[in-house]
């Protein structure tokens, strides 16, 4: 098996989960309803936990640094997260649409990985199945209810979708390792994942009465997977290291 290919995949997934987990955790205490604060907060805990598990695979299977070092002490250019997850939480419409677009991709990705030839990832995929199933169920319920709720909400959801979609296509930014991953039976590849994702979300968007924006690869916002990030990632990483940098030798 091609170790660099697997590592690249793990970093993409771990960094995505870490950053979106952080973003969603920002809703704790300021969400639209107390009950929804609780739900967003739980999902962010799940995501950060998934990131930890993925970094742990990098640590134990590939001798990379420990999960805390990987998550909290790495330079921005080494992050492989897509730009979708980096964007600020904005208003609830954007956060919800991002959650819907991202979590469907994530659920499908883990679904494919359950059959991965790389056992640690296959094992993790099975372990997180339940949590991710709830995330998708939550996203679908809200996506539909808000889109069909009233005209104001529908318009907000449509414009959030139009805005987020090019970023969401960035989830599937091709990597240099696609062929190796497919050949080794590790992962079916980003192109296949994007296909499955479109098949999955298109009818849900239609059923919610929204217009699916045209899928134009030229408009996809790529770069994150190669270390080119939006202006929003660096400030968040600085926050994440603020405490440890007070005394890097200390145990926090």
């Amino acid at each position: 098996m091609n170790n660099d290919a697997i590592k690249d995949l793990l970093y993409r997934m771990a960094d995505d989960a870490l950053i979106i987990g952080h973003r969603n955790s920002e809703w704790t205490g300021i969400g639209p309803m107390l009950e929804e604060d609780l739900a967003f907060s739980s999902m962010s805990q799940d995501k950060i936990g998934h990131a930890q598990a993925l970094y742990n695979i990098l640590y134990t299977s590939f001798g990379e640094k420990n999960p805390d070092m990987l998550a909290f002490q790495r330079a921005e250019k080494d992050f492989r997260s897509c730009q979708l997850v980096e964007l600020p939480i904005g208003e609830y419409d954007f956060s919800l649409v991002r959650h819907f677009l991202f979590d469907h991709a994530e659920a499908l990705r883990y679904g494919l990985l359950e059959a991965s030839s790389f056992a640690p990832l296959a094992g993790l995929a099975r372990k997180v199945r339940g949590e991710i199933r709830y995330h998708v169920m939550h996203a679908d319920t809200f996506f539909k209810q808000l889109s069909t709720g009233n005209e104001v909400a529908k318009a907000r959801m449509q414009s959030a979708l139009n805005y987020a979609l090019p970023y969401a296509l960035g989830i599937f930014e091709p990597s240099a390792y696609e062929e190796a991953l497919i050949a080794d039976g590790v992962f079916a590849g980003e192109a296949r994942l994007q296909e499955l994702w479109l098949e999955k979300i298109t009818p849900i968007v239609a059923a919610a009465g929204l217009q699916m924006p045209a899928i134009d690869a030229a408009k996809a916002i790529y770069g994150g997977r190669k270390g080119y990030h939006s202006e929003y990632l660096q400030p968040l990483l600085a926050e994440m290291t603020e405490v440890t940098s007070i005394d890097p030798a200390a145990e926090w």
């Binding site: 955790s25 704790t28 205490g29 805990q45």
Partner: peptide, 27 residues
């Protein structure tokens, strides 16, 4: 909540988010 994004490692971060979440739940 002021320190949620700045909690320094996985252990502290997850504990703090879960703790603040509980407070909202108590509300």
């Amino acid at each position: 909540g002021t320190w949620i994004t700045r909690a320094p490692n996985f252990r502290r971060k997850l504990a703090l988010i879960a703790k603040v979440q509980d407070e909202v739940g108590h509300g």
